[in-house]
Amino acid sequence: MTTVIREGWTTFKSIFTGMGVTIRHFFKPAVTELYPEEKVELPKGARAKLYVNIDDCIGCNLCARACPVNCIDIETVMATSDVDLGKTSTGNPKRFWLTQFDIDMAKCMYCDLCTFPCPTDCIYMVPEYEYSEFDRTNLVYHFSDLTPEKVDEVKEKAEKEAEEKKKERERKMKEKKAKAKDKAKSKPKPKPKPKQPDNKKDDEES
């Protein structure tokens, strides 16, 4: 009987405590945010949507390697010798065309690990949290500013230059081998050493 009374008192006490909180707030001004007209300001350092300043990216691929869920896909093509891609705002030279830089925010776990190894600080999180989609493919963000036609042109030029450099290396190797062969032919043969007299045989005859 004592247990029943104690449990009943605990139940009513919990109800009265909750109602007391409700009554206290009933006479206070409302603090409800009128979303979406009023939006909560995110605190400094909040982890939200990833953004890439593609003009400062050097294609080092460090962010993609640091990502634990592989939500960053990067594809680069070496710039040909006739193209100067300039430098980033931090002074780093740009040697690669960024033919692909995609981030799948549907896979992102908001760990922020990809932002730390970036040498140019071009990838970072922005205070944007309203990007829900009905189609998950719309959560893949494409940051490369190259058109498909430009990508094909860049790849074709890079392949052509790589093939030319390969042929040039092979030609130089052949020339080097031919010179080494000619040098070996033109090198005078060593004269045979004169035979030493056989002193042992002369001693035996004497």
Score class of each variant (00 low, 15 high):
Phe96Leu: 12
Asp121Leu: 04
Ser132Asn: 15
Glu164Met: 07
Tyr51Asn: 12
Cys57Gly: 02
Leu113Asp: 09
Lys200Phe: 07
Pro194His: 00
Asp73Leu: 14
Leu139Met: 05
Lys181Glu: 12
Cys111Arg: 03
Lys157Ala: 02
Lys107Arg: 07
Ser81Asp: 11
Ile15Asp: 02
Lys150Thr: 06
Lys195Trp: 01
Pro29Asp: 11
Gly59His: 05
Glu164His: 06
Val52Ala: 11
Tyr35Asn: 05
Pro192Cys: 01
Thr76Trp: 01
Asn138Thr: 14
Cys114Lys: 01
Met19Thr: 14
Leu50Ile: 04
Gly8Trp: 14
Ala180Cys: 00
Met105Val: 06
Asp55Lys: 11
Met109Thr: 14
Thr11Asn: 13
Phe134Gly: 15
Pro36Asn: 02
Cys60Gln: 04
Met1Pro: 09
Glu168Pro: 09
Leu42Cys: 05
Ala30Tyr: 12
Arg136Tyr: 13
Arg171Glu: 07
Arg171Asp: 08
Thr10Gln: 12
Leu146Trp: 10
Leu50Ala: 13
Glu205Cys: 08
Asp182Gly: 09
Gly18Asn: 12
Gly59Leu: 01
Lys195Asn: 05
Arg136Gln: 15
Phe26Leu: 13
Met173Lys: 04
Arg6Phe: 09
Leu62Pro: 04
Leu98Tyr: 05
Thr22Phe: 07
Asp203Val: 14
Glu75Asn: 07
Asn53Met: 06
Arg169Met: 11
Val40Trp: 11
Val21Trp: 03
Ser81Ile: 10
Ile74Cys: 01
Val52Met: 03
Asp145Asn: 11
Lys107Thr: 01
Asp82Gly: 04
Lys176Gln: 12
Asp73Met: 11
Ser206Trp: 08
Arg171Lys: 08
Cys111Gly: 00
Thr137Gly: 12
Lys172Asp: 07
Tyr129Asp: 12
Thr147Lys: 10
Glu37Phe: 08
Glu168Lys: 15
Tyr124Pro: 05
Gly8Tyr: 15
Arg24Ser: 10
Met109Asn: 11
Glu130Ala: 08
Lys193Ala: 09
Arg171Thr: 10
Glu7Met: 12
Val77Ser: 00
Val69Asn: 02
Glu153Val: 04
His25Val: 15
Glu156Gln: 00
Asp82Glu: 07
Cys111Tyr: 00
Glu163His: 13
Asp135Ala: 10
Ile74Asp: 01
Met173Thr: 14
Thr22Asn: 13
Val151Ser: 04
